[in-house]
Design a protein around this nucleic acid. Structure first.
Lengths: 206, 206
DNA sequence: ATATATTGTGAGCGCTCATTCAAAAAAATG
DNA sequence: CATTTTTTTGAATGAGCGCTCACAATATAT
């Protein structure tokens, strides 16, 4: 018999609850130092139940990571699309990323760990998915920048390289902020990053 | 009885040989997916022998990582010290890093994985060492940039932030190059990175 | 050549988990 | 309420692997 709509809904809710708890624990200790028993405990299910929602530990981890990553990229892109003007769009790319990182610091810390080296089927396809997501996101940024080049606001560099640099600046600021807990918010670095990206650090005598 | 000088030398050579082989295997499969048996095989020693050179798997890994990291930073700093002129020094910081990454791609790939989350004593102190090394290196770059600010070549931003950005650009280019195997060398991106760092991407009408 | 010291060996021990599955509990059905 | 179906449970299983240690091989000393 088919699952009823209610069942399906409840299933999703429980699945999300597990994912939520797993994220916190994985973030704290890394993939290899977390046991299924721990996740079961934290999420209030039994070990066996976890296997009803996920095919195994790797699957659970992989689902969590890739779903959350999607969320980040979507959030950023929506905010950028709702903004007009090249300079403003670039500013929003930075701001939206910073905001996500601040609101999901644990997850991001986990993500940069990149404990997905296992040669298994599941982990291999996770790596592939991350790469594809990244490429897709870079292409999104690239296209925005192309408009900036077209209308003369940006120098005629290769748009792809510029996108890499912009995303690199964002990512690095985020990593730095996560590694060295500072009193100032990550968002407060936005203007500096924007200015460096647009004008560089060299002093131009008038 | 004390070890003779020759013995000591031979000990070091063997230790280095193990480290060398371990680096390759760890780079390929990550810390958790490598067994001591594999390392023993690859380096031509028995499992038991490994424990004569290192206190355990974590220790072996930790030694390898931190010793190689030292090497990188030293190489870069020496080359920069041997260069004169602010612009030239900045260029050399980029070039020297790129060169090391190209010559040690496997190691770098391993390093960015950062599989050192275990809560053990050894791994905790490895993390600390990596952070300290990083801070020290950033301070070195910061000091070079301070001179550039003082003599008016660079805009009067916070030198620390500028150093972060420069190192961020370098690191990100390197990561990008490692993740997306490209036909062009990493070094060929040097001029672009330098230009962006100094002048930004904005088009300034004359 | 014999004795002594040093270094190398790898089978096996002990332990940690991911995963399973038989039985229990809960929910649905009539 | 009795019966069937679905879901939950966690002790038991077994595979994997870091590490030890009794023994072997080799080097050094006498």
């Amino acid at each position: 018999m088919e699952k009823s709509a209610r069942k399906k809904r409840e299933f999703k809710v429980r699945r999300a609850e597990i994912l939520d708890q797993a994220e916190k624990i994985f973030a704290l200790k890394g993939f290899y130092n977390v046991t299924m028993a721990e996740i079961a405990n934290a999420s209030g299910f039994s070990i066996g139940s976890l296997y009803q929602y996920f095919e195994g530990k790797e699957n659970l981890y992989s689902s969590m990571l890739s779903e959350k990553l999607n969320l980040m990229h979507e959030q950023v892109r929506e905010k950028v699309k709702a903004t007009s003007g090249i300079a403003e769009k670039i500013e929003m790319i930075i701001a939206a990323h910073f905001q996500f990182v601040e609101n999901n610091a644990d997850f991001c810390r986990l993500f940069i760990r990149g404990e997905n080296a296992a040669p298994s089927e599941v982990m291999t396809s996770l790596r592939q998915k991350i790469m594809d997501d990244y490429t897709q996101h870079l292409t999104f940024i690239e296209n925005e920048l192309k408009n900036g080049i077209k209308n003369g606001f940006l120098r005629p560099f290769l748009a792809r390289d510029m996108a890499s640099v912009l995303f690199g600046l964002i990512r690095f600021s985020a990593v730095d902020w996560m590694l060295f807990p500072s009193k100032t918010s990550l968002s407060s670095k936005k203007d500096f990053i924007l200015q460096v990206f647009l004008q560089g650090v060299q002093h131009n005598e008038k």
